[in-house]
């Protein structure tokens, strides 16, 4: 009896899984090869110009001090755009997320339509939203702000809903039982426990918003992004480097600041 058991080889994985793995690997390789072929990559051209990289890079090793004040000013305008969209977006998101979260919604269909709308907004890139807004209200900062509201709300509403649903039914039920109305339940029962996590999400979004408001320069929204686009178009290498450094330092500062804020907020929740 014992002999028989040892005689039979024991498979580490069942045969079906063992077969599946190489099959999936082969499929992935095929997809990769087909994609590369579909792109018609010009390897020869790439190789011939590879030598130029050193020369081009050397152009970038320059710093244009006179550009700095303007770059900083434009950066400020980009930051303002990001913060403006965040401020308006967070108010909209706060209202809509309470209407959409499963445990707080006054109406299931309303919740479903808000959640559906958010899924749609998140599926479309921010740049496309801005282009659509520009198409309808023209170029400028207003379009940038309105356009930036879409990804801001998409992100915040989704995060806010997750935080609200995480709270469960307990206190909501308790306040319902006292005869309190919906608004009172939200304000006194749900919001107090949520403030820190909502602020945490909002501060996190600040980073994305500034980054996106910079990238909106590409579609004609003013700010450091459009300044960078102009410099790129004119091959002003020193200017490009200066602007890039300004962007880099700003983003790093914002990231560190947001990190500190979130640490403070999260520390508060665990206390």
């Amino acid at each position: 009896m014992k002999m028989k058991e040892t005689a039979k080889k024991i498979q580490l994985t069942p045969l079906s899984t063992a077969l599946k793995t190489p099959l999936i690997a082969a499929l992935l390789v095929t997809v990769f090869v087909v994609s590369v072929m579909a792109l018609h990559l010009d390897i020869a051209k790439f190789q011939s110009r590879l030598a130029n990289i050193g020369k081009t890079l050397s152009h970038f090793v320059a710093f244009d001090i006179p550009t700095l004040p303007k770059a900083l000013l434009e950066m400020l305008s980009s930051i303002s755009l990001g913060i403006g969209a965040l401020a308006i977006g967070s108010v909209i998101s706060l209202a809509l997320s309470f209407l959409a979260a499963a445990n707080t919604t006054p109406n299931r269909f309303l919740a479903a339509s808000i959640k559906g709308g958010i899924a749609l907004i998140r599926a479309v890139p921010a740049l496309v939203w801005v282009l659509m807004v520009i198409a309808s209200i023209g170029f400028g900062n207003t379009s940038g702000l309105v356009g930036l509201l879409f990804p801001t709300c998409g992100y915040l509403i989704k995060s806010f809903i997750a935080s609200i649903e995480d709270k469960g039914m307990g206190t909501i039920e308790a306040l319902q039982a006292t005869g309190a109305g919906w608004f009172e339940i939200m304000l006194f029962g749900v919001l107090p426990g949520l403030l820190t996590s909502l602020l945490s999400w909002t501060s996190m979004r600040l980073e994305h918003n500034i980054a996106e408001s910079i990238s909106l320069g590409m579609v004609g929204v003013s700010g450091v992004g459009s300044m960078l686009m102009r410099a790129l178009g004119n091959y002003h290498y020193a200017e490009i480097t200066t602007i890039t450094v300004v962007i880099f330092v700003t983003m790093l500062t914002v990231e560190l600041a947001v990190g500190q804020v979130r640490k403070k907020l999260n520390g508060d929740t665990t206390k």
Binding site: G170, T171, E173, A174, L175, F188, G189, P192, G193, L195
Partner: peptide, 9 residues
């Protein structure tokens, strides 16, 4: 309620 359901904060 069993779990008191007070508003925690």
């Amino acid at each position: 309620f069993q779990h008191y359901n007070l508003v925690a904060r």
